[in-house]
Amino acid sequence: MLPGLFQPASTADLQAQLARDFPQRLVLASGGRQALLECGAGPTVVLLHGIGSGAASWLQVAQQLASRARVIAWDAPGYGDSSPLESPAPKAEQYAARLLQMLDTLGVEDCVLVGHSLGALPALALARSTQAQRVRRLLLISPARGYGAAQFAERRQQVRQQRLDNLEHLDIAGLAEQRSAHMLSPAAEPQALAWVRWNMARLNPDGYRQAIELLCGDDLLRHGAPDMPCDVHCGDADSITPAATCLSLAQALGARFSLIAGAGHASPIEQPRVVAGLVACALQESLTGSPL
């Protein structure tokens, strides 16, 4: 392989890089503790993962950004070492409140906020809250709308039951084995598949159940369009939140839209350099008003 091109890493290699380059911190939060990964210095980028993942899924994106930004990725409530929320069926605002507590503890006054998949819901909830000034720019990557709107009532029950049944009958390890390939494009490298599977296998059942309720009981669009600039990106081979769906969400939110070539749903793992470039461009625009 030519110098400078991406060198695939094994899961063991990535775990070692995670401990070295993107170490975990624990901070106190209402109801318990909040886990996060942090690296770099400079203007802050905050990364929120999706329902079947965790903070570590952002490792390779964070490595690319660490030379120009302070990069923070949370393990959502109930994920990793983060305490779950009190409500068994939380809404996006409750996740956003925990996120705000984390930002306060870390001394983050403003940031570029990035929500992937289900992470889009708490991201937009914070961006539409009374603390919206804390978000300089919003990026939603393959955003999940959720099934909380009235027109999705039948689908909502199907999705909830299917996910809960899978959790009961497959357990977390079986869920990771069955679902990992759906997160990526057909052309994904084995190393990317292994990293998706490793992240998914670390799910906590209680946190995952709460996230299922967020997915099924909330609606991204009920929050309305954010006041700050917003971008929506989607993998061109995303079969979970397809391009047409993401485009319609972008239009509803008044956001710019673009496709990520060669990526399925888990683009931060499958195309980390491209995703890091999109985040870096958003960061630059948030600071100067001009793209890179």
Rank of each mutant, 00 (worst) to 15 (best):
M1G: 14
P3H: 09
G4C: 09
Q7R: 14
A19Y: 00
A19H: 06
R20I: 07
D21W: 06
Q24H: 04
L28Q: 14
A29R: 12
Q34V: 06
Q34D: 01
A35F: 01
A35G: 09
L36K: 01
G40W: 00
A41Y: 00
P43Y: 05
V46N: 01
V46R: 03
H49K: 01
G50S: 03
I51P: 03
G52M: 10
G52S: 09
G54M: 09
A55C: 02
A56S: 12
W58R: 03
Q63W: 00
Q63K: 11
Q64M: 02
Q64H: 11
A66D: 03
R68Y: 05
I72E: 01
A73Y: 05
W74M: 12
A76L: 10
Y79C: 07
S82Q: 04
S82E: 07
P90D: 08
A92T: 01
A97V: 08
L100W: 06
Q101G: 13
G107T: 07
V108I: 15
D110Q: 14
D110E: 15
C111F: 03
C111D: 00
G119L: 04
A123I: 00
T130R: 15
A132Q: 15
R134M: 10
V135Q: 05
V135F: 05
R137K: 12
L139S: 01
I141M: 11
S142I: 05
P143W: 07
A144Q: 06
A144P: 04
Y147P: 08
Y147H: 14
G148A: 02
A153V: 11
R156Y: 08
Q158G: 10
V159H: 00
V159P: 04
R160K: 13
R163F: 06
L164V: 04
E168G: 00
E168W: 01
H169R: 14
L170Y: 09
I172V: 15
A173G: 08
A173T: 13
L175T: 07
A176S: 07
A181W: 02
H182G: 03
H182C: 06
A187S: 13
A187M: 05
E189D: 12
Q191T: 13
W198T: 05
N199S: 00
A201S: 15
L203D: 01
N204D: 14
D206T: 13
Y208P: 04
Y208N: 02
R209L: 10
Q210F: 09
Q210C: 04
A211D: 04
I212T: 09
L215I: 04
L215Y: 09
L221H: 08
H223T: 08
D227C: 10
M228T: 02
D231I: 03
H233C: 14
G235D: 09
G235K: 07
D236K: 08
A237L: 14
S239M: 14
A243F: 04
T245F: 11
C246P: 05
S248D: 15
S248A: 15
L249H: 07
L249D: 03
A250D: 08
L253Y: 11
A255N: 06
F257Q: 11
F257K: 12
L259T: 12
A261G: 14
G262Q: 07
A263R: 05
G264Y: 06
A266T: 04
S267W: 11
P268W: 10
I269W: 03
V279C: 09
V279Q: 07
A282S: 14
L283M: 13
L283G: 05
L287R: 13
G289T: 12
G289E: 13
G289N: 12
S290F: 14
L292A: 04
